[in-house]
């Protein structure tokens, strides 16, 4: 078990959300620039260069860190966009850059040695060999773990590596081979891993029809919801499709990860930081989720009674349903 206190890493899609996360108890906040260099490139979201610098000042004044996600994969003819984003992040005084692309990792390792490098979940590094490679080549100090590992696997991994690990504990799930999703690209021509947009909103529609609401992505029907039934994100991976004569959530259920009950287990497995997903979510979500996890993490650190986070956060979950995901996986 790690003896240091676990770090609570929280999302910020806008400067106001960054302040809300810090004030709710985040040890670190992660955010991105308003362009395709980060995996949440949505309209109205993210930071300008000036807003990031201001956000870093605010976070540092309150004892929190800022981690900048530059975690999409650079295009062969436009690598400079990603390099300039890394330069701007370093100039802002941010504490770390979260990256996955070799070009970005190499650029930061060579030109900005003062800033920590964290390996994005987009790199899907889940073996000691893969993580060791990133650590040796680029000096990566922390790896964000793919959401496909069980607690036992995380513990074994931590015993075999020398870098910190960060595990998702709450929010949307993306359990494919992370960083290599082709579903959205197939339907929309836009890639989550290259353009930072999974299900670009200009191609999403929620159509009110007799009997309920139909969610479509680029003309493909993803799901139909009866009146009053909770809805989910309009992503293909969480759509309902007919196969083998049966209609079901073919790829994955529209549920939120909630590993709030596993904080002690993750600590015992050697995890350094706990990550909350949701840079596309608002201040209300961020404040409520961060406050609940702050309470739960503090309780674990003090050896107290666990906090019932599932009950506290049921209203903030996608589809109003929660799962512990692969952490307690009973399947292979």
């Amino acid at each position: 078990m790690t003896t240091t206190r676990m770090e609570l890493v929280c999302p910020a899609g806008t400067p106001a959300t960054l302040r809300a996360a810090v004030q709710a108890g985040a040890n670190a906040v992660y955010c991105g620039f308003r362009d395709e260099t980060n995996a949440r490139n949505f309209p109205g979201l993210n930071f300008s260069r000036d807003e990031l610098a201001e956000g870093v000042r605010f976070a540092h004044d309150h004892g929190s860190k800022v981690l900048v996600a530059i975690n999409t994969f650079a295009r062969v003819d436009d690598v400079d966009i990603w390099k300039k984003a890394a330069d701007a992040a370093a100039e802002s005084g941010a504490d770390a850059i979260i990256a996955a692309d070799f070009a970005v990792l190499g650029h930061v390792a060579k030109n900005h040695k003062q800033i920590r490098l964290h390996l994005s979940v987009q790199a899907a590094a889940a073996t000691p060999e893969a993580i060791g490679f990133y650590a040796a080549q680029f000096g990566v100090r922390r790896v964000v773990l793919p959401r496909v590992l069980s607690l036992q696997e995380i513990a074994a991994l931590n015993r075999a590596i020398d870098v910190e690990t960060e595990a998702f504990v709450f929010g949307g799930l993306c359990v494919m081979i992370e960083g290599r999703c082709y579903l959205s690209s197939y339907a929309t021509g836009k890639s989550p891993n290259l353009n930072g947009v999974c299900s670009p909103p200009q191609m999403v529609s929620y159509d009110e029809e007799p009997g309920g609401t139909t969610a479509r992505l680029s003309g493909f029907t993803i799901d139909r919801y009866e009146r009053g039934q909770p809805v989910g994100y309009p992503t293909l991976c969480k759509g309902k499709f007919k196969a083998g004569g049966r209609t079901s959530h073919l790829f994955e259920d529209p549920v939120s990860l909630n590993a709030g009950g596993m904080i002690a287990g993750l600590k015992a497995a050697g995890v350094t930081a706990l990550k909350i997903e949701g840079r596309q979510r608002g201040k209300g979500y961020v404040s409520e989720v961060v406050r609940a996890f702050r309470k739960a993490v503090d309780a674990v650190e003090k050896g107290g009674e666990p906090v019932d986070i599932g009950r506290l956060l049921a209203g903030q979950s996608e589809g109003a349903r929660q799962t512990a995901g692969a952490y307690e996986k009973k399947w292979r």
Partner: peptide, 18 residues
């Protein structure tokens, strides 16, 4: 929170999602 209100169908949206 707008997303929570939308997921739970308290508000509804249609048209240009972006």
């Amino acid at each position: 929170d707008g997303d929570a209100m939308f997921f739970s169908r308290v508000i509804s949206i249609s048209g240009r999602t972006e």
